Simulated scan of single mutants.
Amino acid sequence: MITFPNAKINLGLNIVSKRDDGYHNIESCFYPIPWRDSLEVMEAASFAFHSYGLKIPGDTSSNLCVKAYDLLKTDFDIPPVEIHLLKNIPMGAGLGGGSADGAFTLKMLNDLFSLGLSDSMLEAYALQLGSDCPFFIRNQPTIATDRGEQLEPIDLDLSGYYLAIHNPGIHVSTKEAYSGVKPKESEISVSEIVQRPIEQWKELLRNDFEASIFPNHPEIEQLKKEMYEAGAIYASMTGSGSTVFGVFEDEIAHTEWKSFELH
């Protein structure tokens, strides 16, 4: 069984407040985009995990695909599997690629072994893997709140627009990203803004991490400016960086930027 886990972008990201558990409450719109990994899962004599493409840091046991299998193996009598992951989506880039891989592994195991898990049940398992993982179970435009795990589908369709996206290869740690933010309630919710005409987003839709990251990494801020200079209707850093995207009316030709038609 083969599937193609996709990335997501953040349309707006407000850091609303700091929680007692040390995490932050956020508000953001997660939007799926067609930048994909390739994931194959098959029954095998013994468990094995193989990765190709972009090098994945860390030990194999910490990979979310492996953790997804171990999670379901605890509750269900499923046989060993062999997992092959072709990694195309950059890691630590605000695109949710690892979270997608883990969530899609859960969905594949559910289908492969007819476990009968509903989307809600899969989301509960996915949350044990990470805050971003539940989004990729239903994989549709969604308003995310709290730590990012409270999900409310939103009627948002960017079909026909084009996305230019580029990861400049700058690593921004979560600690660095949060160190400069000042949590505050936004005057207009992300949910309300993204339902306005896209031409209004430039003045209203913010990623709060930009204020702390741009001074330390002016190359990322410059990339956002270049997106607007190239004609973007809206441009932003996604997540805690360092990937920047622009939404365009027409397909954009650039030697370094990836371009996709949105669906």
Rank of each mutant, 00 (worst) to 15 (best):
E82F: 00
Y52V: 04
D20W: 00
D208I: 11
W201Q: 08
V172Q: 06
A144K: 06
I198E: 08
P57I: 12
I170P: 11
D250W: 00
S186V: 10
P57C: 08
D59N: 14
A144G: 06
R36T: 15
L223T: 12
E256A: 12
S99W: 02
W35I: 15
N216W: 00
E43G: 01
D250T: 14
E226A: 13
N10T: 14
R138G: 04
D59P: 02
G12H: 05
V194W: 04
G98K: 01
M91V: 14
K55E: 15
A45E: 15
F135L: 07
I56P: 00
G231C: 09
L13W: 00
N207R: 00
P134R: 08
L13Y: 01
I9R: 00
L54E: 09
R19S: 12
P134M: 08
D208T: 07
F214C: 04
P90D: 11
G160F: 01
T145N: 09
S99C: 05
L106M: 07
I9Q: 01
L117H: 05
Q140A: 09
P5S: 12
V172E: 09
L109P: 07
Q200P: 00
F4D: 10
D77G: 08
P197N: 02
L106C: 06
N207D: 10
D59G: 02
L71K: 09
I89N: 13
N25I: 04
K225D: 14
I78L: 06
F76E: 09
